[in-house]
């Protein structure tokens, strides 16, 4: 059974906003940059608490990112948040050169991750940000699983990290189930559920779906281990190798293109260190569309039932090999 209790659905973007506010209370150098949609990406809390440390730059993401680099070069801790599609893609060159090549501590919040953005449709559903951010030298890439963890991840990203950080979160209220007293450890995956037959390595709010999928599998007599990969880069190699060696089958679960996201990062470790059968849950080289979040997750094979189905196939393959 699922040992976690949903304390009530809450959007991870809200968690990000709380983390940013808390970081601002702890450190005067934290500065937030707004690109118009501040209330939608969790920056409004900070902006009303610290109006003097909020800089409005309008709908101009490229400028926002490079301004952040200038602030960071001077010792400030700039946090820039907007929709992931704009942050990671429109401003990719600025992130590459002004932020990553200069290796400055700029925190980029990528909101509206995945198809669960819902009715806004494909243009606003970030499904490529992990690929692009992962490819950049010096970048740390975080993808927490619920609002509570996102708050702690934001705190860690802002106050503990050095260098560039991209933190990804979603729009829709989703189950909030992790322990607020567990501090976020950058680069460390957490084992959410024990199991020996296969491992579901999930990221973002799909960790919850993976936990539900494990329940379905349990009824078929399969014990699935669930790993929350809340840091995509640097990936927790040790945890991946352990799961591969101990369960001999790995399914990655992400609300992102399967090209270049979590699945690719995990496969890179598995194939070089401990090759075992793998399967990939995620967007299969296509765009999303409008619709209710849960139905979209179902349509694109990211709900618990689809995950369990894929896992079952992989388990059978493993047993027949």
């Amino acid at each position: 059974m699922n040992p976690y209790t949903n304390k009530g659905n809450k959007a991870t973007r809200t968690g990000f906003g709380e983390g940013l506010l808390a970081a601002g209370q702890l450190n005067d150098n934290v500065i937030a940059i707004g690109a118009d949609i501040t209330s939608s990406v969790g920056v409004d809390l900070f902006a009303s608490a610290f109006p003097d440390r909020f800089i409005s730059l309008g709908i101009a993401e490229q400028n926002c990112v490079a301004v952040a680099a200038g602030l960071a070069l001077e010792g400030k801790i700039p946090v820039f948040s907007t929709y992931g599609v704009f942050a990671a893609l429109r401003a990719a060159d600025q992130i590459r050169v002004s932020v990553c090549y200069n290796n400055v501590h700029v925190i980029i919040g990528g909101a509206h991750a995945g198809v669960s953005v819902g009715p806004d449709g494909a243009t606003h559903q970030a499904l490529e940000d992990l690929s692009i951010m992962q490819a950049l030298p010096n970048m740390t890439l975080l993808s927490p699983c619920d609002a509570t963890e996102t708050k702690n991840a934001a705190l860690a990203a802002i106050l503990q990290c050095r260098g560039p950080v991209y933190i990804r979160f979603g729009r829709e209220p989703m189950p909030d189930f992790t322990d607020p007293n567990i501090p976020f450890k950058i680069g460390k995956a957490s084992e959410m559920l024990k199991g020996d037959d296969l491992t579901l390595i999930a990221t973002g709010h799909l960790v919850w779906e993976a936990l539900l999928a494990a329940q379905i599998l349990e009824k078929q007599g399969i014990t699935a281990r669930v790993l929350n990969m809340s840091t995509i880069k640097p990936i927790d190699r040790e945890a991946v190798i352990r799961c591969a060696a101990e369960t001999r089958a790995i399914i990655t679960v992400e609300e992102h293109q399967i090209n270049g996201g979590l699945g690719s990062a995990v496969a890179g470790v598995v194939v070089t260190e401990c090759p075992v059968p793998m399967a990939f849950i995620g967007m299969k080289d296509q765009f999303g569309e409008s619709g209710p979040p849960l139905e979209l997750m179902k349509k694109f094979g990211m709900d618990a039932a689809s995950i369990a189905d894929t896992a079952l196939h992989l388990f059978r393959k493993k047993m027949s090999d």
Binding site: I55, Q62, N63, V65, A66, V67, A68, A69, G70, L71, A72, L73, E74, G75, K76, P78, D93, Q94, V97, S98
Partner: peptide, 14 residues
């Protein structure tokens, strides 16, 4: 096309 933006960040920091 990036230097002016970075300079703005530096000027704001000052």
């Amino acid at each position: 096309g990036q230097g002016l933006s970075v300079a703005i960040g530096m000027a704001l920091a000052a």
